[in-house]
Nucleic acid binder design. Structure first.
Lengths: 183, 183
DNA sequence: CTGAAATGAGACAATGTTGTATCAAATAGA
DNA sequence: TCTATTTGATACAACATTGTCTCATTTCAG
């Protein structure tokens, strides 16, 4: 079935704002093939749209994670998580950058939850010895975020093969922070 | 001596736009402690300011690079380059994101030159066996850019120690892409 | 001190964006 | 078919931003 007007608008907004954060609502509506009035009917104001966008990005990340099997090592789970998130690179990055992610309590709670889940996964990978314990958790998470977005961008602009992107992120993170390189 | 009004404005613009890309000229002038008219006197239009900003960012990167000794291995040169660029994280990232960097021929030529220099350095590091040859150059450069900005951000927000930031980037890149981990 | 240059403050028109409202056409469902 | 809902197009006022201009004041060099 055809995607709803609302979904089309959300997708258009994510794509448009990822490329140009200051894009106007006219730009977003036009890319969605919809009148600007319809956008206002669905989301009220620009803030309303941003809010819906952020919630959608969080939900998309959760949907991508839910299928990952937990019956394996934390290292393999991390690999699967990277594989799941790289294709969402634009949304995932949008999630961390947009201003509303720091003001709205409902949103910040969800983001904190996702960051906490990621930190717990990193801790588990550390316990397996795949990541050195002297590396700050915050750096691992920050590097993951940065590399995932870099991989999405590089693939999107045609510099690297799309199917290679998640592997490069995993290899960069795991090899770079491996316990054997400590000191 | 006191920095010139022009320099103060450029610094204010970089800081302000790095935090909020859509900031108004009023915001920039206010942070610099000058009137908006003065900003227009120095740079004409917003585009003029962006243009000057980008040239300044390129010059700052070059200034940071010029002191690096070449009488050592490419790997050590890369370490020094990272050390020099991380403190410029905001400017360096601004350099790659702003729209004018893709239209103005004078600017794109300079950016291409810097990217070429970085690619050549990466190639030399590969020849030393520190980076695996099967990793795309584009990915190394993209990962470097992403990690440098992540390090600057993490240090700026207090998540990691400022003096640890360059080392973490180097360790992440080199360890992660080392030849011994290939395959 | 004196004059030139730079600045701050403000007025002003032009422009783009936003949010709201209205009305006719299209669409979907009973 | 008939009706309710959704949409496109358009107009409109409110608002912020931008670029230009003027004039009084400050700053600085000679």
């Amino acid at each position: 079935m055809r995607p709803s007007t609302r979904d089309t608008l959300i997708q258009s907004a994510i794509t448009t704002l990822a490329a140009q954060p200051g894009a106007s609502l006219e730009d977003i509506a036009q890319r969605a093939g919809v009148g600007r009035a319809t956008l206002h009917r669905h989301f009220g104001s620009r803030d309303g749209l941003i809010h819906a966008l952020t919630r959608e990005a969080i939900a998309a990340t959760d949907r991508a994670m839910v299928d990952i099997s937990r019956d394996t090592s934390a290292t393999e789970i991390l690999r699967a998580v990277i594989e799941a998130i790289v294709p969402l690179g634009d949304q995932y990055h949008f999630l961390t950058l947009e201003a509303a992610t720091k003001t709205d309590p409902e949103i910040t709670a969800e983001i904190d939850r996702q960051l906490r889940e990621m930190s717990e996964l990193v801790a588990a990978v550390k316990q397996e010895g795949t990541i050195a314990t002297d590396v700050p958790d915050a750096w691992v998470v920050a590097a993951l975020d940065a590399l995932i977005y870099a991989a999405w961008t590089s693939a999107h602009e045609g510099w690297i093969a799309r199917r290679d992107a998640p592997g490069l992120v995993f290899r960069t993170i795991i090899g770079g922070l491996s316990a054997s390189d400590a000191g």
